[in-house]
Design a protein around this nucleic acid. Sequence first.
RNA 1: GGCCCCUUGGUCAAGCGGUCUAAGACACCGCCCUUUCACGGCGGUAACAGGAGUUCGAGUCUCCUAGGGGUCACCA
Length: 485
Amino acid sequence: MTVRTRFAPSPTGYLHIGGLRTALYAYLFAKKNGGVFILRIEDTDQARYVEGAIEKIYSGLKLAGLNWDEGPDIGGDYGPYVQSERKDMYLPYAKQLVESGHAYYCFCTKDELEARRAEVEARGETFKYDKHCLHLDKDEVQRKLAEGHPYVIRQNIPESGEAGFDDVIYGRIDVDCSELDDTVLIKADGMPTYNFANVIDDHTMGITHVMRGNEYLSSTPKYNLLYEAFGWEKPVYIHLTPVMKDATRKLSKRYGDPGFEDLLAQGYLAEAIVNYVALVGWSPGDDREFFTMDELIEAFGIEGLSKSPAIFDEVKLRWMNAEYIRKLSPEDYIRHAEPHLAEADVAHMDKAILARILQPRTEIFTDITGMVDFLAKLDEDYSIDLFTNKKSKTNAEVCRDVLADVIPKLGALPDWTEECLHDFLIGYAAEHGMKNGTLLWPVRIAMSGRSVTPGGAIEIAALLGRDEAMRRLNFGLEKLSFSLV
RNA sequence: GGCCCCUUGGUCAAGCGGUCUAAGACACCGCCCUUUCACGGCGGUAACAGGAGUUCGAGUCUCCUAGGGGUCACCA
């Protein structure tokens, strides 16, 4: 039998990290088993529909490399793949359940229920629908339907006995039927609820393995009751733990946690995010941490899925992203870095040097601007304390003397290339019996106005070009001389 | 609150009754490399939530407690 999994988001916003991971696992499981991965849109709640959300789901999944085999945009043999377009399919199934006594019409209005709920909760008890409409006699139901009273269809849950299911990760889970409420299957607007639609759709679409967040753990017994009422074969259930922000909070948009595309915009690589997210709640069972999508497919297995929630660690994601960035070719690195170099106004400088000094230092691409903006413009207010460095044996006075002596010689250099600068400066230090640092420290500080820079004096000088480098050196010397008077 | 689920270092995690004086990674700390910072190399600190059982033997099985999560909608 062909494995068929699905990712079934509702179009209420962007693709969040938890959703990405659920989709990833469903995709990996399908591909691992030579199966089919399906995208289905669950939009039965028109009130929550967000414009453009479906497009964000499409683009997010594509960017992540999760290509679906069947879905709203590409079709398939089990379409349509949008629940609102399947609206007419659900009512007949619900009526079938009414016929068999597994469901019933309910005419209680929202207001009535609200009032009863408030009353019960005021007593500190949990509200549960009292099956009031189950006891309506047939004629009365027919009369109300004929009169056009609004109605919902509710699942008729047995008053006693047990309901349960087997989950691959959690094992057998049983619950007393008395704990279960008579869930609404068909809403007054004719739309099915999620609870009903997911069962009908999973069955009619031939889904073999249901992977979803474990917030559905407690309602799954009810779904199983539905499968039994229809006499359908049940899917294999695989409930996934949530991705957490910290020990007590789920990662969520409401608290401003970034979604997949936010992370991309922050300068994370899609491959790195996918790789990291795969490892949040799943382990290959060995030491490997770096995976291409194909390697993930090869390594994936439900045995490696975790039972307990996992905290999303952005620090580790940063590290992994940096690893991915370092593996980029210089050309690919520059391609990704380009917009940020432009933002810092240094895009006209030597790309090879920029790539060489920046690539090992970039954790996320948005770091770049802050690392190189000094190249475009020197902050002339830098403190002369920067010239003091113990390890390089420098202080303001030493730096003034060094600069005073070396500047004219730099100015007389025949070429202003890295090689030329390197040979001259290193040779100069050796000649004068000083540490490289004693010479290079003041040069770098004067050219950057920063204590920390990507690259050293030589690379910075080459990037700035002779004129600007000389200007900054002279400015630094003046600044030192002035303060030492 | 009822019901269900979870619990190995700060974080992700390996571990499926003996090989656990508990792996690996991130983070952190130290050292080395070095013209700053990174990169790279080497090393270090750090965990089986607590308590009862079962067993010759428990991180691994059972129960209880504690903590955390989920769910109790005409939302998904």
